[in-house]
Design a protein around this nucleic acid. Structure first.
Length: 438
RNA sequence: GUGCCUGUAGCUCAAUGGCAGAGCGCCUGACUGUGGAUCAGGAAGUUGUGGGUUCGAGCCCCAUCAGGCACCCCA
């Protein structure tokens, strides 16, 4: 007996969901290509060794297996490590800086929950081979542009820099080793609050004075310029943090020059982000409608590609979580909700009219109108019902009367209006209705 | 990976340990050149799966699978 069930954490995406998902991907693709980003696709399967050693603790979530030839393989954990591999492998062919986008599934053997799946789709944007703050700004600007285009009413992009967090840890007298526990604790600030973070810090061995200092710094809030000025004062002794603050200032200047509204981003010293390969600017977008975590996030990782390439290739990138974007858009009722891909439904009046009706459908498709045909001639009521149920807006009838007059009956099932028009006029009328609908 | 909650028709959910039901959806017809509304009828279930307790289990117990929540972590 066959098992009729999805593998844990793996989902089917039925047409209704797919149409919204494709809208999201199409929107992101358009934004990417408008800035000259180029598409890349890599295999879902990599050598396990390629993925190992880049992810820290998360490595235990990698799906590993052996193929028929005894090779140690793994399903990709994200699209960033494969990008690093490609950049190193095709170093001679890729002109840097290189802007690349990629869309596809990745796999993590986590316990599934809402918005968290073992197979999940990401849309990645990266600028490979530039350390310019304008590269960081461009990625963040695209993030804001994308969420705006998708119709998100109230998202905020939180910005921070790894060396600001590092500086906070260092001026609080913590070692590099203790710092990672600090990152994890402060990253939870929005979830567990100041007291919760304090408790976590104490638990991970930070003394009370240092914990208070950290909490103090991490809670600095306000306009980006003010936050950075306050941090500059507090972290004056830490050269790396000061450089990071200057870097963030340059990024923000870029955002302003690129026309990103100031309401769409904030500097948040408490933002840490988990992935261990980030080295510079980090950011994530949050919305009150998704308390479970970030919608998407990214940052600068200047060392990762070097592990493959053998030379330093600074890179900044971003990953949209398509599954989460889709789930939130469903809840907020954002984006279009087509029920079908077809605009017109050509009925089959009777066996004698099949050939003419199919020819009509071909004409419409040639004119760019997505057209569905009935498969059983006769019983128009049933055919109209099918068109309506499918959510196709226009039903067309080519019966004996219409054929002698060289006309077509077109019924707008949405409005309930029906007209008989010259056959030649149908395509342009449908095309018109299409553009009006947008 | 740990703890807790849930699983009944396609969907949303009822059913004190005692005959498995409703609404929506679906199919047929009223309506052989027209969908939606209305009316009439119909199909639909191994109660996630496998064991156990009981005269009797959708309900209680054990296991297992899947989903959700909190940890952990992250998209």
């Amino acid at each position: 007996m066959a098992i009729i069930q999805n593998v844990k954490g793996m989902r089917d995406h039925l047409p209704t969901d797919m149409m919204l998902r494709q809208y999201i991907v199409t929107t992101l693709t358009r934004i990417s290509e408008s800035r000259g980003f180029e598409p890349l696709q890599t295999p879902i399967i990599e050598y396990a060794e390629t993925l190992e050693g880049k992810l820290g603790d998360d490595e235990k979530l990698i799906y590993r297996f052996e193929d028929h030839g005894g090779r140690r393989l793994a399903l990709r954990y994200d699209q960033t490590v494969p990008l690093a591999r490609v950049t190193a492998q095709y170093a001679g062919q890729l002109a840097l800086p290189w802007r690349r986008y990629a869309y596809g599934p990745s796999y993590r053997g986590e316990r599934p929950a809402r918005g968290r799946y073992r197979e999940f789709y990401q849309f990645d944007l990266d600028i490979v081979g530039s350390s310019s703050p304008l590269a960081d700004a461009e990625i963040v600007a695209m993030l804001c542009e994308a969420l705006t285009a998708l119709g998100f009413p109230d998202f905020v992009t939180l910005l921070n820099h790894r060396q600001i967090i590092g500086g906070i840890a260092r001026v609080s007298g913590l070692s590099e080793e203790a710092a990672s526990g600090v990152y994890r604790a402060i990253d939870k600030f929005d979830k567990i609050g100041a007291d919760g973070v304090r408790a976590e810090l104490l638990k991970s061995g930070v003394d009370a004075a240092a914990a208070d200092r950290i909490l103090n710094l991490v809670q600095i809030d306000g306009a980006p310029a003010d936050v950075l000025a306050a941090l500059e004062q507090q972290l004056a002794d830490d050269r790396r943090a000061i450089a990071a603050i200057a870097n963030l200032r340059a990024v923000i200047a870029g955002l302003t020059a690129m026309g990103v509204p100031a309401s769409q981003y904030r500097v948040a010293p408490r933002l840490a982000r988990g992935l261990s390969y980030y080295t510079g600017v980090v950011f994530e977008a949050i919305t009150p409608h998704w308390p479970e975590g970030s919608l998407l996030g990214g940052g600068r990782y200047d060392d990762l590609i070097g592990l493959f390439a053998g030379r330093n290739i600074p890179t900044v990138g971003l990953a949209f979580g398509i599954d989460r974007l889709h789930d939130v858009m469903l809840e907020l009722n954002l984006g279009p909700r087509p029920r079908t891909t077809a605009v017109a439904f050509v009925t089959l009046f009777g066996p004698e009219q099949v050939a003419d009706s199919l020819a009509l459908a071909t004409e419409l498709r040639a004119a760019g109108i997505n057209t569905l045909i009935a498969l059983e001639p006769g019983n128009l009521g049933k055919q109209f019902k099918e068109a309506d149920r499918r959510g196709v807006r226009f039903a067309l009838v080519l019966g004996p009367d219409e054929l002698t007059r060289n006309e077509v009956v077109i019924k707008d099932l949405q409005r309930g209006e029906q007209r008989s028009l010259p056959r030649a006029a149908i395509a342009s009328l449908l095309a018109e209705a299409l553009t009006e609908g947008k």
